[in-house]
C-alpha cells in the first residue's frame, strides 16, 4: 500500500500509547505542532492489556489542561486503530489535518511567520 496522507504530519513513535504522558503532548505544542493525534491500538488489543485505555484517560486530562491554558483541547484527539489499518490511518490523518486547519495555527505561534522554533514543520501547505 502506498497511501497518501497529509505530508505535514510528523510521526513520533512510542512503544505503546500508554507510554504517552502529558509532557510529550505539551512539548509537541510548545515546539510548534498545531494539533496532536494520538493513535492507539484497538481497545481490547493492547499488548500491555490496558495501555490504550489509560492513554485515552490521559489524553482527556490533557485536553482539559489545554483548554485551561488557552491552546484548546480540540487540538488533541485520540483514535484507536490497528497497525493493519493503513487506509484508516490515512483517512484519520487527513480528517485531523482538515480539522486543525479550520482551527488555524497553534496560537503560540500566531504572530510569527514560521513556527518560530527550530522544529521542522515540513511540508506545510505546499
Amino acid at each position: 500500500m502506498r497511501l497518501q496522507y497529509a505530508t505535514n504530519i510528523r510521526i513520533v513513535e512510542m512503544t505503546c500509547s500508554g507510554n504517552i504522558d502529558h509532557r510529550v503532548i505539551l512539548n509537541a505544542f510548545e515546539e510548534g505542532a498545531d494539533g496532536v493525534f494520538v493513535a492507539g491500538c484497538m481497545e481490547g488489543d493492547c499488548h500491555f492489556l490496558k495501555g490504550n485505555i489509560r492513554a485515552r484517560k490521559r489524553v482527556n486530562a490533557v485536553k482539559k489542561l489545554l483548554d485551561e491554558i488557552g491552546i484548546g483541547g480540540d487540538r488533541l484527539e485520540m483514535y484507536n486503530l490497528s497497525s493493519a489499518q493503513g487506509g484508516r490511518f490515512a483517512e484519520i490523518a487527513n480528517d485531523i489535518t482538515a480539522k486543525i486547519k479550520d482551527l488555524g495555527p497553534n496560537p503560540l505561534f500566531k504572530n510569527s511567520s514560521c513556527c518560530g522554533c527550530s522544529c521542522s514543520k515540513e511540508g506545510g501547505d505546499q
Binding site: 505539551l26 510548545e30 489542561l65 485551561e68 488557552g70 496560537p107 503560540l108
Partner: peptide, 9 residues
Amino acid sequence: AALRIMRKL
C-alpha cells in the same frame, strides 16, 4: 510547560 504556554499566549 503549562505555565510557559499560558504566559506565551
